[in-house]
Design a protein around this nucleic acid. Sequence first.
DNA 1: ATAAAATTTTATTAAGTTATAAAATAATAC
DNA 2: GTATTATTTTATAACTTAATAAAATTTTAT
Lengths: 195, 195
Amino acid sequence: MSKVDNKPKRFTEVLDAAAEVFAEKGYHGASTTDIADKLEIKQAGIYYYFKSKDSALAEVCRLGVQGYVERLIVISQADLSADRKIREAIREHMQPFHDLPNYVQVFQYERRYLAGESRAEVNKLASKYEGELCRLFEAGVAAGDFRQDLDCKLATLALLGMCNSVTVWYDGKSKKQIQRIADHFADFIIDGILR
Amino acid sequence: MSKVDNKPKRFTEVLDAAAEVFAEKGYHGASTTDIADKLEIKQAGIYYYFKSKDSALAEVCRLGVQGYVERLIVISQADLSADRKIREAIREHMQPFHDLPNYVQVFQYERRYLAGESRAEVNKLASKYEGELCRLFEAGVAAGDFRQDLDCKLATLALLGMCNSVTVWYDGKSKKQIQRIADHFADFIIDGILR
DNA sequence: ATAAAATTTTATTAAGTTATAAAATAATAC
DNA sequence: GTATTATTTTATAACTTAATAAAATTTTAT
């Protein structure tokens, strides 16, 4: 269940349908008819809620990134060791994979089809998030917790790539499952796999 | 059937154009006109080379995975420690990101739009590759090189996700660069980032 | 119950899509 | 240089698509 600001319930249902269809078929592979079908209304009906197909994508993407930066900043300011912060960040990063998988997936894979303004907006957020994450690694190096020669930018990209790939195969069975995955992934990147 | 290698040069050019356009705009976002434009011929002209747009995607995807399983098997049979094999596998995995980025990207992101036969074919290869990779981790655990409690399946997925994400931001400047990335990523997953 | 507001349908437009077939042109072989 | 083959163009068919406007219907508030 996604809560969309304070807009009426029906608006959320339509947005959910769009997110679902975009996630399943891709933005260009999905038609406005597909969205309408899912809602059991006629194709033209969805234009009561959206100005265009493109704006529907923008809205879904926006909700797909929503809160990520804020949650990461909270973690970065917490009184924790660098490796604990990374662990916590991974958990927080993956939680939405369970809670709003379609929105996150669409943000991840379809945001590149956004145009102009809305594209810049979500990319800016993604960029900020990446930067914040990178600073977590840098803090770990500065504190002497992480290797001195660590390429923090590369570690950031590795972590993000690793984590984000989960959305492709995660089946969304239980909340416990996603946390288990998060913790294992944290082990991989922090401790490695050697005995 | 590696068509490209023994078919006339022009066929390769058309396939390259398809790969480029599919990578750039996505399969559904790309039109046959886009492909033709890139070749400076008319839209109908590409049907001399392909039965359908779908078959072009199938061919691009096939070339995108081509050789992956074979190269991994060579590594798995080599006389190397488990962690060395993983390192080597990552290098080999990433080399095509430099050599044929469009084909690999299309395989990664667009293969899901393939239908029936061709979809099953590439997925089978991807599955086999994943299995082989997993066995590398299992061998490491069995040999006592890796942690006894390692979730090998999860490690496999983590590694693949991490590595594959590189195609999104890699700019293809030099061969050295991709090897540097590969080696760093190997460090991350094998040794972790702790000091 | 009735007016107002919200939602959905019907009907339509204009543009873009893949794919085919036949004709035209260019390249190569003899 | 002509015949043969390879490649590209022209023309077009059959669909699908996003989006608009007005009418119809349903829901909500008074």
